[in-house]
Design a protein around this nucleic acid. Sequence first.
RNA 1: CGGGGCGUAGCGUAGUGGCUAGCGCGCCUGCUUUGGGAGCAGGAGACCGGGAGUUCGAAUCUCCCCGCCCCGACCA
Length: 592
Amino acid sequence: MISRMSAMFVRTLRDDPADAEVPSHKLLVRGGYVRRIAPGIFSWLPLGYTVYRNVEKIVRDEMDKAGFQEVHFPALLPREAYEETGRWTEYGDNLFRLKDRRENDYLLGPTHEEMFTLMVKGEYSSYRDLPLVIYQIQTKYRDEARPRAGILRGREFVMKDSYSFDVTDEGLELSYKRHRDAYISTFDRLGLSYVIVSAMAGAMGGSLSEEFLAPSEVGEDTYVRCSCGHAANVEAVVIPAAKWDDSMDLPAELPASHVEDTPNTPTIDSLVAISNERADLRRDDRSWESSDTLKNLLLVLTDAEGNEQPLAIGIPGDREVDMRRLEAAIYPLTARPFEEADFKKFPSLAKGYIGPGVLGKESVSGIEFRTDPRIVSGTRWITGANQHGKHVFDLVYGRDFTSDSVIDVAEVRDGDICSECGGELRMSRGIEIGHIFQLGRKYAEALGLRVLDEHGELVTVTMGSYGIGVSRAVAAIAEQHHDERGLVWPREVAPADIYLVAAGKSEEIITTAEDLAEQWDAVGLRVILDDRVGVSPGVKFNDSELLGIPTIVVVGKGLERGVIEVKDRGTGVREDIELVDAVARVRHICTT
RNA sequence: CGGGGCGUAGCGUAGUGGCUAGCGCGCCUGCUUUGGGAGCAGGAGACCGGGAGUUCGAAUCUCCCCGCCCCGACCA
């Protein structure tokens, strides 16, 4: 089919929209691909919808190729299904809720685990029916507190989600592997570069989980990567315990701990500064660093029933607790910092000068005390002395104090140690384009999905859950494929193969362009013909680059010499091609 | 939910109490123009986010509300 710019429902904008920040948002709006309707809610215009459908088709192709079967659930769902797993309440404000005319509760599905599980439960009851993988491509709704970055994080978005159902753990592993492979093919075809990182199963429960992240500065996820190939979302980064090495003193050789007056040291920095200034505190081998201090944070953990328990976390003073890593580590509990009222319950805590002496299950406070993996036997610390204005120096772990257990929730930094090889981790940002989980039996258990095995025994099915953000992928591709002039679509997702500019108003130029468009169309190439009259060539050139069609053909001045101009949008390389060779040459370019 | 910024035509914006709210892009008509966002002339298009108040007079000042963007919190 030939699309004509003269008739196409598209309007390109010269200026960036004021409300757009990230490149994909700016360019998709400027190019007339999408328009915002409400916060986090967008309409797809013809060009954008074509790209969207191309992406969707690739996703569907690869799912089908893997042998998975497509189904389609409603987006509008009754409350009941989400009641059984507790998510009607658990999902909180992020759930779009509504009522029908009889005041019955409904919701717009944010995800469909329950529906899939219940559907399989309704149909199947024998191990002979398994394994099974079904998927859907569905519009999802989440009433995000803050939608952002245009298409990248909307309140309405399209996701491909699939679910595997197996009897055995080995079966689940195989289903997981098949998805992993299918995702690799999918993202390769979409022209996305990506890294597969280990992730936290988090709120989804389950064990093994990996994310596909498309590296991008505007990505919301932070991950680390090591030259050994190891990669992980920061939430899932494991910091190895500090290793003993010869440069470390034996505990016996370390000075005995001593309590010192340290007035006016409200911050770690001021404490370190004074420790280095005062001759009685200075250490002889090197100066004190903030990483020599041990800071003890107090939190209140809350479980689903609302029960609270205190927790103290000790981490090196140069680090902060990463709240996302903390949430992941203590899931399903949630955490909040100690408030005044909490401190009042523990008179042994001297706020601002809390040290290990009063922490731990066996201590006077009885508060569970967990420490960073860097805090190991033989390490010496400056920390609170549990009296206002006093700190204790040379407090040695293993000799002077211990903790109840390790907790790995300190912020991760560039250069931190890789748990796999001991190398240095590098941090980057990425857009989450896919996530695969081995859910295990949590949902099946909750919803009673059991089948009879070959011995006639009822066994709970084990499940996997796998998602690809289809609409997000469009934006992710735009993020990875653009330059200062506009979009640069990979061919398979591009809205057309050729953007054919008729640069001039002579009869010859127009008929030649029309003729070429028809010939390319006849051999299966998708052509956008810029046949707008009264539009200057400059406008057409600029639009051709903004829209990002991979091959740009210009029919114009060159005709006098019997040539047309063919330009590769990505590389910018242009060449003149004899008109007589044009059909075959361009076809070759577009199909290889 | 906390912090910051912003709401003026389809888009981008100017306008710190005073005449009929200005400009650019886009749009319509005519003429000219056609290889990098053309020129001239003429036009259409704005309840200046909403409400209340102060004032002889409010886009402009005050209060309340609504909405949007960014950062944080939150987030399959």
